Simulated scan of single mutants.
Amino acid sequence: MKRSGPLLTLLGGLLLALFMLSLNATTGTGNSSYGGSAPGTVTPKPAPTKSSPEPSPEPTRSRPTKSGPPAGKPPADAEYAGRTDDGASAVSISVRDGRAIAYYCDGRATESWLKGDVEDDGSMRLTGKHGAKLDGRIVGEKVRGTVDIDDGTSKFTARKAEKPSGLYRATTEVRGARIDGGWIVLQDGSQVGVLTRDGEPAKAPRLDPDTGTARVDGTEITVRAVEP
C-alpha cells in the first residue's frame, strides 16, 4: 500500500503528457488555415519603390509674328510723256512689270536713254550713260521728278499717255550709215526727237505713228514703240 503513492504520481504525469501531446496536435505550430503567418514569424515588408516624378509640361512658347505693312502692289503698266518745267526738252517713260525705260531729248542734239526699277510706292531711280540719271515718282496719273544730263538738272512732269502718244525708237542702217533715232510723241500730237547718224546727232524727221515709219535720206525706216 505504501508503494501506491509513487505509482499514482507516475500515472498522473503520463496522463498530463498525453494531454499536452493531444493539445499540440490539435492547435499545430504551422500556418493557420486562414493563410496567416505562424506565431512568432515576421513577414518582411516589400521595399518601397521610388516613383520617378512626372516631368512638368514645358511652357507653351508663342512664336513671334512678323509685323509690318503688307506688301505693296507694283504700279500698273503705263506710258508717260511730258516736258521739262522750262519747256526746253521732253521726257517720256514706259513702265512694264516694275521696270522702266525713259528717254530725254531736246529735239536738237542732246539725248539720253535711261532705265531701272520702279518701287511699289511708285518711286524710280533710272540711270544712263555718262552719269545721266532720272529720279521720279508716279503719283496718280503723272510722274514728277528731276533729270540730270550733262551736269544740268531739270524738273519735269510727264502725264499718262495713250497711243499714239508715248516713246518710240528706230535702230537700223541707211546707205551704210548707222542710224539710231528716238521720238517722244506728246498728248497734243507734237513730237520731240533726235536722230543720230554714225554718232552725229540732229533733229529727227517726223514720225508717222499710224504706220510706225519715218523717212531718213529718202529711205523709209521702221519705228517701234519702246517697252522695257
Results as ranks from 00 to 15, higher is better:
158 A>G: 07
172 T>L: 00
126 L>A: 00
73 K>C: 10
31 N>D: 15
25 A>E: 14
223 V>D: 06
116 G>Y: 08
61 R>I: 15
33 S>N: 12
205 P>E: 08
184 I>Y: 00
25 A>H: 11
201 P>Y: 01
125 R>N: 13
16 L>K: 14
124 M>T: 11
204 A>I: 08
33 S>W: 10
163 K>T: 15
190 S>V: 08
57 P>V: 04
108 R>E: 10
177 A>D: 06
135 D>I: 14
66 K>C: 08
23 L>N: 10
224 R>C: 12
224 R>D: 09
131 G>F: 01
15 L>A: 11
224 R>V: 15
5 G>T: 13
144 R>K: 15
4 S>P: 01
162 E>C: 07
122 G>Y: 01
223 V>E: 04
44 P>E: 15
3 R>M: 13
109 A>L: 06
157 T>P: 00
17 A>Q: 12
169 R>K: 09
57 P>M: 03
201 P>N: 04
193 G>P: 01
112 S>D: 11
17 A>H: 01
21 L>V: 12
1 M>K: 06
51 S>Y: 11
56 S>F: 04
63 R>M: 15
173 E>V: 09
5 G>S: 11
84 T>V: 03
76 A>V: 13
187 Q>G: 08
106 D>F: 05
107 G>R: 03
115 K>C: 07
81 A>T: 12
10 L>K: 02
173 E>M: 03
11 L>P: 03
105 C>V: 12
191 Q>W: 05
185 V>S: 00
215 R>P: 05
204 A>Q: 09
127 T>D: 01
187 Q>M: 09
133 K>I: 06
196 T>M: 01
121 D>C: 03
136 G>F: 11
38 A>F: 05
107 G>E: 02
75 P>A: 03
102 A>L: 04
31 N>C: 15
227 E>L: 13
53 P>C: 04
42 V>G: 06
69 P>K: 09
134 L>C: 05
161 A>Q: 05
94 S>F: 02
210 D>A: 14
166 G>Y: 02
191 Q>D: 04
156 F>E: 05
138 I>P: 02
103 Y>T: 15
53 P>V: 13
177 A>S: 10
130 H>D: 09
222 T>L: 06
218 G>H: 04
61 R>W: 13
71 A>H: 08
129 K>D: 10
98 G>T: 09
175 R>L: 12
105 C>T: 13
195 L>D: 03
174 V>T: 01
106 D>E: 06
122 G>K: 01
108 R>F: 12
131 G>C: 00
72 G>L: 03
175 R>D: 14
27 T>C: 07
51 S>I: 11
111 E>C: 09
91 V>N: 01
144 R>C: 13
188 D>R: 02
25 A>I: 13
112 S>G: 05
126 L>N: 04
112 S>M: 06
11 L>M: 06
130 H>S: 11
173 E>F: 03
91 V>E: 00
176 G>Q: 00
7 L>A: 09
71 A>I: 10
81 A>G: 05
41 T>V: 12
75 P>D: 08
195 L>R: 08
92 S>I: 08
23 L>S: 11
